[in-house]
Amino acid sequence: MYLTGTFQHNLDAKSRLTLPASFRKQVGDTVCLVPLDDAIYGFTPESHKAWVSSFFPQGLNPRNRRDVQLHSLLMRRTVTVEVDSAGRIALGKVSAEALQKLGIEREVTVIGNDDHFEIWSAAAFKAMDEQIESLDDLMFDD
């Protein structure tokens, strides 16, 4: 899976998001949604498992309290949803508290970020994007 691009979308009345067509072809029938501090991350089950495992490079140690708590928290925050026949995912399955904290109501920005996609409130994405230096400044050392 290799997701790229930035897309503006509106949620429908049932808080469903229609995934960009190029994403639908790659994600399949099931998506794992993880609300974080700035956005909701969307993964395939396989890429979600790899992402969770990346926090434990030596493997999950069941005798390490931090490992167990982090793993449990990541799994508890994850909501697995089906992609319907119209290519929509139900953001209403994410807790109302998380959606409110993220400011996700109607207008959203969906970005591809390699092995996952991110769902931002349109306003939060715009504010974050305006804080980034120019692409040239980030790509090249002076």
Rank of each mutant, 00 (worst) to 15 (best):
S121T: 10
A21Q: 00
E46W: 02
T6L: 03
A50L: 08
T6G: 03
Y2I: 04
F23K: 01
L17K: 00
S85G: 06
T44K: 01
E97F: 06
A50R: 12
A39E: 14
V34R: 10
I111K: 08
A13N: 15
D115S: 08
D137G: 05
V34G: 03
Q100N: 12
H48V: 09
E118T: 05
G87H: 01
A122G: 03
G112S: 13
M1L: 14
R16L: 07
D114F: 14
A98K: 02
K101T: 14
H71Y: 15
L73V: 15
S54W: 06
K101G: 13
D67K: 08
G112P: 10
L74F: 06
D38V: 07
A98V: 06
S95F: 12
W51Q: 15
G42C: 05
S15I: 05
S15W: 11
I89E: 06
H71M: 13
H116M: 05
A96I: 08
E105I: 11
T78D: 13
Y2H: 09
W51H: 15
W51K: 13
Q100P: 03
L3R: 07
T80H: 03
V81W: 01
T18G: 00
I104V: 11
V108L: 04
D38G: 04
G87V: 04
P57H: 13
T109H: 05
L138D: 09
V83A: 01
F43V: 07
K101S: 15
D129L: 02
L70M: 02
E105Y: 12
H116I: 03
L36Q: 13
K126G: 14
P35H: 08
S72F: 14
D141A: 12
D29C: 04
Q26K: 09
F23M: 07
E107A: 11
I104C: 00
G42S: 07
F117H: 00
D37E: 11
A50S: 06
V108T: 09
G28E: 06
L17Y: 02
G28H: 06
L138H: 13
P57D: 06
E130S: 11
L91G: 05
F7D: 00
E130L: 05
N10T: 12
H71S: 15
I40Q: 03
G103M: 08
R77N: 15
I104G: 01
N61H: 10
K25P: 03
R88Q: 12
D12Y: 04
S85H: 04
R66I: 12
A122H: 06
I111N: 07
H9A: 11
K126W: 11
E107S: 12
K101C: 11
S121W: 00
T109G: 02
R65T: 14
L17W: 04
A122T: 05
I40W: 01
T80V: 10
L70Y: 05
D12W: 02
R65K: 08
I111C: 07
D129N: 10
A124G: 08
D137Y: 04
L73Y: 14
